[in-house]
Design a protein around this nucleic acid. Structure first.
Length: 615
RNA sequence: GGAGCUGUCGUCUAGUGGUUUAGGACACGUGCCUGUCACGCACGAGGUCGCGGGUUCGAAUCCCGUCAGCUCCGCCA
């Protein structure tokens, strides 16, 4: 609704309105109140609504500060009235008039300016408008495709104004905070070097160097580190990052990170700084006081208890390990899993026996979707009788141990997954999240932060059949697991950390490697041969040889953070011009084909099948 | 690469094989209206039922394909 634009995130204070006075206007719509009664005002804005009563016309004039009612009376001022008759919704107009008090019966308590109205002396049309595709107050009912096509209209709505002003508040607060902590803002190239590690790069052909390409940065990571080598000590940027991967509600091909790097720091220094930043952002935007410091969970514990490295800590329902209970099981599924060093874990769901067979089948599908072989469910009936399709495969002793371990009571539901560790955890973690929402276990007003620490240095990439870095290849191994690098790299911990809020990863960083030999070693463990190391990272290794301080940093996902602050469902709501799931901009119709000449200037020939955007 | 959901006037939608000439609300146009603020009243205009093919005497409706949007899996160092 655009009735009462509150603009709680607008940085304008009451007495700042004067700075908006221009040659075309004296006041803003939303500032008009009893104190200004009698003054001559010149107002500019959009026509939110026209109400035509014959010889009397009301216009609601809107700017970003709010709405004010303007009255045109045919008897008092016929020329202005005649123009007002032609005015339509979303016309941009300039109105001159006198601010008057409304009579007691006509005061509108729903409107911030409802005590007053403008008696118009004149009106001029600065710009007419076609009938808009939808009325602004219909926004929440209108299909997103339509809103994106007419984004300039959509952005006029109170919701979008508030989102982008909230976003601005976050960036400006961040800049203030980091500036006052000794950081300087340094820009780094958008035309950067392609490094095939990590996400897929967006490529930009170089006209002056035919056949070669820049890549848009996936993050300013190496530039940040090199600036540390250069002695700036602390730098940040509100950095645009580009990753050519498939989209999600919380993933756009270009997105913004609060990206910073510090010299001569350890893990605690970075975490403490960021806790201060987040607390300040929450104080400035929501006015809420966060309890510091945030709790810290090891990656291992997070996976075991919550089945994910970005746990939603607003509710309990932790996963319980049951492997030992079934070590002598005669149940084929368990025997198979255990013989392959798998695990058996369970989730106890209070009041879970209410679920129908159909719903339980859906839980099984969910578990399969997350890679688990299947899901066993057990309903606890009166007298602690366990009702399950697999009941007959469990011994009385195993059943009793289950009851004791999970402290089962009547009406509980137990969901059990048996598979390899990661698959088991993530399947149960997904079910835990689903059930948390489904059973309304989540306090939707809560903000539950945690640091996830003690990440493994590497994970095994099943497709590539090699190790890949859990964070990125510049992350320092933890000093106490350094000696395991050669022997069992999968057990090496890193000095990486993620910050998690309500089940979302909102940032991550690490203490970096500042030793060339260690950096080389990590590249080799990752399976890069010397040529590839030189081609992709030679410049960086060279830089490491000229005096590199210990350093570390972090990047916060700005879009996600603002989305959560604004209680929104998608980062598209906090990005002025977002793209669809197929990375298409409906408003500008981009990407689009280019001319043969443009292509030939950058030495590109399209394969015949791909010309003109055809398949 | 895969799965699911959705697609009907500008917008939101009703319509699940046959008086459907596709209905309603809002918006829009014209007229009337001097206190509305979801203004009111009257009249009116507006639809390639996403697109293509098929089944059928008959398709918005069933089937197949395709496109687009959304959500998710894979992917996102």
């Amino acid at each position: 609704m655009v009735i009462n634009m509150t603009n709680k995130y607008s940085s304008i204070k009451k007495n700042d309105f004067k700075s908006f006075a221009t040659t075309l206007r004296t006041n803003m719509c939303g500032e008009l109140n009893r104190d200004l009664i009698g003054s001559k005002v010149k107002l500019c804005g959009w026509v939110n609504k026209r109400r035509d009563h014959g010889k009397l016309i009301f216009l609601d004039l809107r700017d970003f500060t709010g709405l004010v009612q303007v009255v045109f009376d045919a008897h008092d001022n016929e020329p202005a009235y005649n123009i007002a008759k032609e005015i339509r919704t979303e016309y941009v107009v300039l109105i001159e008039g006198t601010l008057k008090a409304r009579s007691a019966e006509t005061v509108n308590k729903e409107l911030a300016t409802g005590d007053v109205e403008v008696a118009a002396d004149s009106i001029s049309i600065l710009s007419s408008s076609k009938t808009p595709p939808y009325a602004l107050d219909e926004r929440d009912r209108v299909d997103e495709m339509t809103r994106l096509k007419y984004r300039y209209v959509d952005l006029r709505t109170e919701d979008m104004q508030e989102s982008l002003r909230l976003r601005h508040k976050v960036t400006s607060t961040t800049r203030q905070y980091l500036n006052s902590n000794g950081f300087i803002e340094v820009e780094t190239p958008i035309l950067a070097k392609s490094t095939p590690e990590g996400a897929r790069d967006f490529l930009v052909p170089s006209r002056l160097n035919p056949g070669t390409f820049y890549a848009l940065p996936q993050s300013p990571q190496l530039y940040k580190q090199i600036l540390m080598f250069s002695g700036f000590d602390r730098i940040y940027q509100i950095a645009r990052c580009f990753r050519d991967e498939d989209l999600r509600a919380d993933r756009q091909p270009e997105f913004t990170q609060i990206d910073l790097e510090m010299s001569f720091v350890g893990v605690d220094d970075v975490l403490k700084l960021i806790e201060g930043l987040i607390a300040k952002i929450f104080a400035e935007t929501l006015g809420s006081d966060l309890a510091l410091p945030f709790k810290r969970l090891s990656w291992k514990h997070s996976m075991e208890a919550y089945g994910t490295d970005k746990p939603d800590l607003r509710f309990g329902m932790e996963i319980t390990d049951l492997t030992d209970i079934f070590k002598n099981s005669q149940f084929n599924i368990f025997i198979n899993v255990l013989s392959r060093k798998g695990v058996i874990k369970g989730l106890k769901v209070d009041d879970g026996s209410q679920f129908t067979r159909k719903e339980l089948d859906e839980f099984v599908d969910t578990a399969r979707k997350y890679g688990a072989g299947g899901l066993i469910w057990i309903k606890v009936e009166s007298g602690n009788v366990l009702n399950s399709p697999v009941s007959k495969f469990l011994t009385d002793d195993e059943k009793q141990q289950l009851i004791d371990r999970l402290e089962l009571k009547e009406n509980n539901l137990v969901l059990i997954v048996a598979d390899q560790f990661l698959k088991t955890c993530s399947a149960l973690g997904a079910l835990r999240n689903y059930l948390g929402h489904r059973l309304n276990l989540i306090d939707l007003d809560a903000f539950d932060f945690a640091w996830i620490v003690d990440f493994p240095m590497f994970e095994f990439d099943d497709r590539e059949k090699r190790l890949s870095p859990m964070h990125h290849p510049f992350t320092s191994p933890s000093p106490d697991s350094l000696d395991m690098l050669d022997i069992e790299p999968l057990n090496v911990k890193s000095l990486a950390y993620d910050i998690v809020l309500n089940g979302n990863e909102i940032g991550g960083g690490s203490i970096r490697i500042n030793d060339i030999e260690l950096q080389r070693k990590i590249f080799r463990i990752l399976g890069f041969d010397d040529k590839r190391i030189e081609d992709n990272f030679g410049f960086f290794l060279r830089a490491l040889q000229y005096g590199a301080p210990p350093h570390g940093g972090i990047a916060l996902g700005m879009d996600r953070l603002v989305m959560i602050l604004g209680m929104l469902e998608s980062i598209r709501e906090v990005i002025a011009f977002p793209k669809t799931q197929s990375a298409y901009c409906i408003m500008t119709e981009s990407p689009s084909v280019v001319t043969e000449q443009q292509l030939s200037e950058v030495s590109i020939k399209l394969s015949p099948a791909k010309k003109q955007g055809e398949e």
